[in-house]
Design a protein around this nucleic acid. Structure first.
Lengths: 124, 124
DNA sequence: CTTGTATTCAACCAATCGGTTGAATAAGGA
DNA sequence: TCCTTATTCAACCGATTGGTTGAATACAAG
């Protein structure tokens, strides 16, 4: 029972939808850190932070190794890359479409250039 | 009571954590569409899709205009840009750090290049 | 072996989520 | 006016989420 790319993407986005987890990711860009290191800035329990890390790990955004009784957390930037991959792909499509649209509008007779109106004709 | 950038980011990521909503965004890169257009491919009720669109709208990822009794939905690619902004910023930091680390490792005497070990010395 | 430290597991709770169905609203057309 | 089409609102429901506290596990060090 392994993970479809769809599911991993869902988990990654869900993981970064929490400000504490985004904050943790930001912190990890500076360097690996233990659970207690990461928990220090927050008012929540260590267990809560541990849960957040589990969520990040299951999304593939971080990995953990063992080092004595500590469990240093490491950011997996490749998982971030997959997310930007998805977003940019769609962003690009949307922007290309808008560019084509504006080109067409520029060629038209005249009247108002107002309103972000659109073809929107079916498709599907 | 307006929206901090932090909150909008949370909402955007949460919005894209659902496969149906990602799918809708993908569909909208082709062109604006009505609620029923968007609902057609799915087995869920029209109301459920309407809710999904509300989530996307509150995240700033789509906007809606009125056109007779229809409410065509339009993708706001700029909101996607904000997301990639956040991710890439952190991705870049992480990768730069790794690059510096590898540089240092290359200069070291010898022994194992194994294990993604790390400085991880405090920080905070 | 006992103690201390770092972390996770387990059970619980309130809030949110994704879905449902049924009723309400908005607008065009007979 | 009445009917149809498009969409939203409202109430409800089970599952998931982010937090809690208390007990368990994994190691290191006396």
């Amino acid at each position: 029972m392994e993970d479809s790319p769809e599911q991993r993407l869902s988990r990654s986005f869900a993981a970064l939808s929490d400000p504490v987890r985004r904050d943790i990711v930001a912190r990890l860009t500076i360097g690996d850190a233990t659970v207690s290191d990461l928990a220090a800035p927050y008012d929540i329990s260590l267990q809560a932070v541990s849960k957040h890390l589990k969520v990040l790990e299951e999304a593939g955004l971080v990995s953990r190794r063992r080092e004595a009784q500590r469990r240093p957390v490491h950011l997996e930037s490749q998982a971030l890359a997959e997310m930007t991959g998805w977003i940019e792909r769609h962003q690009r499509r949307a922007e290309q479409r808008m560019a084509r649209l504006e080109e067409v509008l520029a060629d038209l007779p005249s009247s108002d250039t107002t309103g972000t109106s659109d073809t929107h004709g079916a498709g599907q």
